[in-house]
């Protein structure tokens, strides 16, 4: 196990450290400790299963933000072949909080796009911690148009704390950049599949998150404002994020119950970071199925279904129009 763990993972981490130590001893001294190792492994599995059977929304949030959690680039590597990254908004910037390009999924050419958080200080800064600025939404828009031009289905990975709140971002009209993407995506003439892989942070997430199928990984979150932001506004106290996470219903099952997403993709025991290969396998299967489903439609029908889906979000009964 990696040395990164979140607070409630500590008991699992300690057990795993023991297992690692035993394996080392066994290997270096050529003694057979298999029985003990197997016993501890089983214990670790049970402990993980028990901890993960009753996660609070705030614990899910921590898993969604886990430093070892696979990021967009890991999914690109794990799911696709022949990836060519395409860069730049063609106006002013080559920002990388959103990355994208063309690749193949089961030989089918696709356009892939997603927020990239970055690992390690240097990468994190390079990718602006996955917090897009207006230029990056406009780069995304350019890639969406490219997909439309060449009839490539779009696969979008969502993983952002939110849009970047900065002076330059406002000067470059962040609001318009997000709004325009929402408008264009609602009519983009190719199938779009969106997958929330970690954090679905507000408008920053939605700006590449309008599609024909919207999926969430089991331990991802999706929210209108970060729980810290919500707590700061409602309780004037950002440390009450745990309560805000609970109140806002940010986890996949809650959001599925509100009919705002289509499906939840199961994660390996202990979360995607504990078995990345298994995670890729799970997602690959779901993606195959979903892609076949959305590619089945004629374009106009696809757009009509997409429109009806958007109109169904929070639909209410009305007596008059």
């Amino acid at each position: 196990m990696s040395k990164n763990f979140v607070d409630f993972e500590r008991p699992i981490f300690e057990l795993e450290a023991k297992i690692d130590a035993l394996q080392n001893v066994s290997h270096e001294n050529d003694v057979n400790l298999n029985e003990d190792i197997t016993r501890l492994k089983e214990k670790s599995r049970q402990l993980t299963a028990s901890l993960f059977s009753s996660l609070t929304p705030h614990q899910v949030l921590k898993i969604a933000r886990h430093p070892d959690r696979p990021y967009t680039h890991d999914y690109i590597q794990g799911l696709f072949t022949d990836f060519d990254e395409l860069q730049g908004d063609r106006f002013t910037s080559s920002g990388s909080a959103i990355i994208g390009g063309i690749a193949r999924f089961d030989k089918q050419p696709i356009l892939v796009i997603g927020h990239q958080k970055g690992r390690g200080t240097k990468q994190k800064i390079h990718h602006n911690f996955g917090m897009p600025r207006p230029d990056e939404y406009r780069k995304a828009l350019r890639l969406f148009r490219l997909a439309e031009q060449f009839h490539l289905p779009v696969i979008s990975f969502i993983d952002t704390p939110g849009a970047y709140p900065g002076i330059k971002a406002e000067r470059h009209n962040q609001s318009q950049a997000i709004a325009n993407n929402l408008k264009v995506l609602s009519q983009l003439r190719v199938p779009i599949i969106c997958i929330v892989i970690g954090e679905g942070g507000s408008g920053g997430a939605l700006a590449i998150g309008v599609g024909d199928q919207v999926l969430m990984l089991q331990y991802s979150v999706y929210s209108v404002i970060s729980p810290e932001g919500c707590a700061a506004i409602l309780w004037k106290d950002a440390t009450r994020a745990s309560e805000a996470a609970q109140a806002m219903a940010i986890t996949a099952p809650h959001i599925k119950a509100l009919n705002l997403i289509d499906d939840i993709v199961p994660e390996p025991l202990g979360g995607a970071h504990r078995d990345v290969a298994q995670m890729m396998q799970n997602l690959k299967e779901v993606l195959r199925h979903k892609l076949a489903q959305v590619m089945h439609y004629e374009c106009d029908e696809l757009l009509n279904v997409r429109y009806q889906r958007l109109m169904s979000y929070g639909a209410l009964q009305s007596d008059v129009t």
Partner: peptide, 24 residues
Amino acid sequence: ARMQEGLVSLMQMAKVSAALAKLT
């Protein structure tokens, strides 16, 4: 967006923008 309606409120952004695309 209205926090008290959680993600339903975020999705209104997509909903109204799609409607405006029809107007265009």
